[in-house]
Structure formats: C-alpha cells, structure tokens
Design a protein around this nucleic acid. Structure first.
Lengths: 114, 114
DNA sequence: TTGCGTTATATTTCTTAATATATAACGGGA
DNA sequence: TCCCGTTATATATTAAGAAATATAACGCAA
C-alpha cells in the first residue's frame, strides 16, 4: 500500500458510423505496407496474422470514403500492395492528431493528492 | 464509397506500474456503490457480474495507495460497501480530467481532406 | 438458533476472439 | 507449362475471456 506513481494514459482513433477506421495500430500497418510493398511482410513485422491485417485494410478501404491501399496478386514477386496518396495523407493527419494527444497526456499528469 | 462523417474518439485512464486503476467504467462503478451502498446492486445496475465488480474494486484498493472502497459482510441488510473520502476525491479528479479530454476530442475534429 | 442478504472466493461452463490451417486465384518468369 | 510468392477467402482449431454456478463467511434480527 505504498504510494504508487500515477500516469495518465489513453488511446484515440478516428471512427465513422461503421466503427473505427484509423488508430495507432492501423497507421503503423499502413506505414509498414508502404515501406515493404507487401501486406504479408507488414503483418509479419507486426506479429499479426495476414488475415487480421487484411481484415483491417479491407474495413478501412470500405469505410474511409476512398481507397487507402491498392493490392494485386500474381506477377513479379507474387503480388504487391501500395498505399495511395489518400492513404499517405491520412497517415500524416493522424500523426498530427496523435502528437496533440501525447501533449495532452503529458500536460495533464494526474495529481492524486489524498 | 460515399463520403462518411469522421469523428475523433478515444479513452483515457489512470494507471500505475500494475496497470489501469481508474477509468470511466471504474468511476461509474464507484459512484453506483456510493449511491446504493452495495457492490452487488452496483454490479447489477451496470450489467456486470459481481465477480467482475469485486475484482475491479480489489485491484483498485490494492494499487491506489489507499483504500477507495471499504466493505463488510453480514449485519443489517447482509452487508454493505462504502466509498472512502479518498475514493470520492479520486472520482472528482477523474471527472475533471475527463472533462478536459472531452474538450480535446471536440476541439480536434479530424479534417480528412482528400 | 435459524433465516436472510450480502461479501468473498473457487470452480465450472459457455461464448467469443484469436490463431492456425487449408486452398483458390493470380500473373510473371524460368 | 509449371513453379513461385503473394493476395484473397474459408474453415477449423485453440486460447482467452466472460458468464454462470456453487459455497463459505459474516452479523443482525426474528
């Protein structure tokens, strides 16, 4: 029962009527796809299953109002995935929001004075 | 693929090295215990199991640095639970934090201009 | 001393979510 | 034409979490 160190933490995300479309995990996934050109490689890097990654991407593409990821199968290397211009913009805007949020968290350290 | 309405949403909580100790759900639980004098009644109202409620309370009491809930079994009515002064302070301080957070969310509407 | 309603705790069952496995489709390149 | 690695999708298995159930402890009141 000694005095613990308190920390304010949290999560933010962007949602539509159909639920979450963009959060920290999804943004990281998009970035890794952008870097590798592959959904599979991005999923492996993040230790998530291909299905989980694909479901996220599919949900984003269906609910964002425009495609963030375009993928194709077959061809050189077996297939590939690219992030669209809209996808890159979405990544940048979420980063800006998240930076503000981190500042909010850091600027509101809970002062539990008991 | 028509243009959806975007909304920024999120959650915040207070944590220690041992994990979350106070969030919106836990605060509501404390308030309902305070109003009813009963863990069981509070749990019923929130449609959670008694065990779930008790585990939360126990974790809070063990990790907050002081007791937030004091309970006793037996006696008139079968038993009872009360919120300590420290508990009431914690509730008030979380509410203040959460109000700021709601303002943050409302003031940062995502402008996804694609 | 018995019953009552609650707190406290353990155990079991059920449901959901995550994970793994399998397979088809694809198109370039050998 | 067949192989390769990937995308895309379905199905099955496993793990985790939630929910239900059971039981003991408790102190007051009848």
């Amino acid at each position: 029962m000694d005095k613990p160190i308190f920390k304010l933490n949290g999560r933010i995300w962007i949602e539509t009527a159909n639920g979450k479309v963009l959060g920290l995990g999804r943004v990281e996934l998009l970035e890794r796809i952008h870097a590798s050109g592959s959904i599979r490689q991005a999923a492996l890097q993040m230790k998530m299953s291909y299905k989980q990654a694909w479901d996220m991407i599919n949900h984003m593409n269906e609910n964002f109002g425009s495609l963030l990821v375009i993928s194709q199968r077959g061809g050189k290397g077996g297939g590939k995935a690219i992030i669209t211009e809209d996808g890159l913009k979405a990544i940048a805007q979420f980063h800006a929001l998240h930076k503000k949020f981190r500042e909010f968290l850091a600027g509101n350290i809970p002062g539990i004075d008991l």
